[in-house]
Simulated assay, not measured.
Amino acid sequence: MPELPLQVTATLAALQLIDKLRARHGPVLFHQSGGCCDGSSPMCFPEREFIIGDHDVRMGEIGGASFYISAPQFEYWKHTQLIIDVVEGRGGMFSLENGEGVRFLVRSRLFADDEYAALAAAGRV
C-alpha cells in the first residue's frame, strides 16, 4: 500500500517557531477553527490548556505538535494539504506566537486525484 500523503505539513520557518514556542511553553498543539478574526488562522496553544472538541478532527502532526481542525472546516478543506507557514505580523490574541512579530499562516494545495483516493480508501476524508 502506498504511503498516504500528509494532510498537514509545515515549512522550515514554522518548524523553527514551533521549537522556540515549545522550549518556552512546553508541549503545544494547533487548532484551526475556521471562525472569523483570530479563528481563521492556525492557533498554537499549550497542550495542557486547550480542550479538544468532540467534533474536532486530528489532521496530523507538525514539528511534534498535533494539529486539529473543526469538523465543518475539515469538510471544506479535506481536498487540500494544509501547509503551515510563518509570515511577519501579529499572531492571534491567544496564540502563543503573539508578541513574536510573526504569525502562523495556512497555505494549501489541492490533492491530486490519486492522493485523495488513497486518503478516502484509508478512511481519512
Rank of each mutant, 00 (worst) to 15 (best):
P2Y: 14
E3W: 12
L4Y: 09
L4F: 09
L4M: 07
L6N: 01
Q7W: 13
Q7I: 10
V8D: 09
V8R: 07
T9R: 00
A10V: 08
A10K: 01
T11M: 04
L12G: 06
A14E: 07
L15W: 07
L15H: 06
L15S: 01
L15N: 08
Q16M: 02
Q16H: 03
Q16D: 02
D19T: 13
D19V: 07
K20P: 01
L21P: 02
H25C: 02
H25Q: 00
P27N: 01
V28R: 10
L29C: 08
L29I: 12
F30D: 04
F30E: 03
Q32S: 14
Q32C: 14
Q32G: 12
S33E: 07
S33D: 04
S33G: 08
G35Q: 07
C36K: 13
C36R: 15
C37F: 15
S41L: 09
M43N: 09
F45Q: 03
F50R: 08
F50P: 07
I52T: 00
I52Q: 04
G53C: 05
D54P: 11
D54R: 13
D54M: 13
H55G: 06
H55S: 10
D56R: 14
V57A: 09
G60F: 11
E61C: 03
E61K: 01
I62T: 05
G63Q: 11
G64N: 04
G64R: 12
S66N: 14
F67M: 03
I69G: 13
S70E: 15
A71W: 11
A71T: 10
T80Y: 15
I83F: 07
I84S: 13
I84G: 15
I84F: 14
V86T: 06
E88Q: 06
E88P: 03
E88G: 05
G89C: 07
R90H: 09
G91F: 13
G92F: 01
M93F: 14
F94N: 06
F94S: 05
F94L: 08
F94V: 09
L96Y: 13
E97K: 14
N98Q: 04
N98S: 03
G99S: 00
G101K: 04
G101C: 04
G101E: 00
R103Q: 06
R103K: 06
R103S: 02
R103A: 05
R103G: 05
F104Y: 08
R107F: 13
R107Y: 14
R107L: 12
R107I: 08
S108D: 12
S108C: 10
R109K: 15
R109E: 08
R109T: 08
L110M: 15
L110G: 13
A112S: 15
D113S: 08
D113C: 04
D114L: 02
D114T: 04
E115H: 14
E115C: 14
A117K: 11
A117H: 14
A120F: 11
A120K: 11
A122D: 02
G123E: 09
G123N: 04
